[in-house]
């Protein structure tokens, strides 16, 4: 048994989130994943099945029903209560405000809208924004401290502009979530 818990990755949680709506086959999960979280490189089928395998091993999903031909692509998976608990705890956990967390933020908000409701997504967004603002303030203090050296300043700048971008996105998303209140479940 591998030591890596399946639930360590964003992809694993997105799959758990997609299963919250009901059991699905691996190929359906891949399609739904790519639709929800479009990115340069679509998720490979291999990665879907490998992740599902680890989730199953950890008791977070269970195989329900297999078509006659068998094989993973014919297996339908369902979320277990443990899987649901794992998903909820991921949705509530604030991401460390650091450069490049945006894609995880996106995954989390997309999944929150999918499985929970606008209120839950909003609570998360507000809490995440608070963490970002706090970090932004700390970094601004670092760079405006008397005698800050150039290296420290440019490193702080790098993090600040990325956090600033995240914050703009969080703000916009919150407004969109507000505007579509009640219509966000798919």
């Amino acid at each position: 048994m591998s030591a890596t818990p399946a639930a360590g990755s964003t992809t694993a949680h997105v799959l758990l989130g997609l299963l919250a709506a009901g059991p699905r086959h691996g190929y359906e999960l891949k399609r739904a994943h790519d639709e929800r979280l479009p990115r340069a490189k679509p998720l490979a089928y291999g990665q879907v099945y490998a992740t599902l395998g680890r989730l199953q091993r950890d008791g977070l999903v269970t195989a329900v029903g297999q078509d006659q031909a068998g094989g993973p692509e014919r297996t339908s998976y369902a979320l277990t209560p443990a899987g649901r608990a794992q998903l909820d705890s991921w949705l509530e956990r604030i991401e460390t405000p650091a450069p490049y967390v945006t894609s995880t933020l996106l995954a989390k908000v997309a999944v929150a809208l999918l499985v929970a409701d606008a209120d839950k997504a909003r609570t998360y967004l507000v809490a995440q924004r608070r963490a970002h603002v706090e970090r932004l303030r700390e970094l601004t203090a670092v760079k405006t401290a008397p005698g800050a050296d150039l290296g420290a300043v440019i490193a702080a700048d790098f993090a600040i502009v990325h956090l600033d971008a995240d914050l703009r996105w969080l703000q916009t998303t919150l407004e969109r979530v507000a505007n579509t209140h009640g219509e966000v479940r798919s």
Binding site: V133, D164, Q171
Partner: peptide, 9 residues
């Protein structure tokens, strides 16, 4: 209206 600027406060 900029988060980056609000970070100075």
């Amino acid at each position: 209206h900029e988060p980056r600027i609000a970070g100075y406060a």
